[in-house]
């Protein structure tokens, strides 16, 4: 298997160190489940990997490229990031939001939303074609999360980072989303890293498990028991 992500001696945090000495190599085709108590640095880790926060120490390589020397445009073609917060905009449609994922590739985002193959494919994968023309503030949380995943998929990057995508979803939607993400990671040969508090559910679908405890980072191929 081809390696996608290589983390060496990484220390992360805003000002003081939140997590010490992270070391990890990940091959393509994995769904990584990131767990840990609130405030342990899950979001900070994801944002550091997304090149939003600078690491305090150590190196991150994506596709054998050093993250720290890439500019924003180059990063946006390698790494997609989705945050927890749902946006409430009155007059933006689902397909328009999904098309934002094509922004790094210089596509004209407002024209020909329907005719963009990546946007169409991303919405087909998440089965949201039927709500393509709905406004964002009229859809349910589950539908919004699917639209959010579609936007990330439209970006078509090898590495996808999602901060608590299962939050606010009802039980069946959580299962569906995790199933979809695993399918996309494995068959699409991508690495998807998600943080979540739905440990029992996520342990069924994840292929790799990260856990943060007392500023330490643990990686395992089996679900990590809390304690």
């Amino acid at each position: 298997m081809e390696e996608l992500l290589e983390i060496k001696h990484l220390n992360i945090g805003r000002k003081s160190v939140l997590i010490h000495d992270i070391n990890c190599n990940i091959n393509k085709g994995e769904l990584v489940i990131l767990t840990g108590v609130n405030g342990c640095g899950k979001s900070t880790l994801l944002k550091t990997l997304a090149h939003l926060i600078h690491p305090l120490n150590g190196s991150i390589m994506v596709n054998r490229l050093q993250l720290s020397i890439l500019n924003a445009r180059e990063c946006s073609r390698l790494i997609a990031f989705a945050s927890t917060t749902r946006i409430h905009e009155d007059y933006i449609k689902v397909n328009e939001m999904v098309a934002f994922g094509r922004f790094p590739f210089g596509q004209k985002i407002w024209n020909d939303v329907e005719s963009d193959a990546h946007v169409e494919e991303a919405m087909r994968l998440m089965k949201i074609e039927h709500i393509a023309d709905k406004y964002l503030n009229t859809i349910s949380d589950g539908e919004w999360q699917k639209a959010n995943v579609s936007r990330v998929l439209a970006q078509n990057t090898p590495l996808i980072l999602m901060d608590e995508p299962t939050a606010f979803l009802d039980y069946p939607s959580k299962i569906q989303l995790l199933k979809d993400l695993r399918e996309i990671a494995v068959s699409g040969n991508k690495v998807i890293i998600i943080s979540t508090h739905d440990i029992e559910l996520a342990s069924k679908y994840g292929t790799l498990f990260w856990h943060i405890e007392q500023q330490r980072f643990i990686s395992s191929e089996k679900p990590i028991p809390w304690g």
Partner: peptide, 20 residues
Amino acid sequence: MPSLSVMLLGDDVSRTLGVN
């Protein structure tokens, strides 16, 4: 305007989409 509209997605997400 294209960059400003991407910024609807919030500061973090729009930065990962290559918007300065």
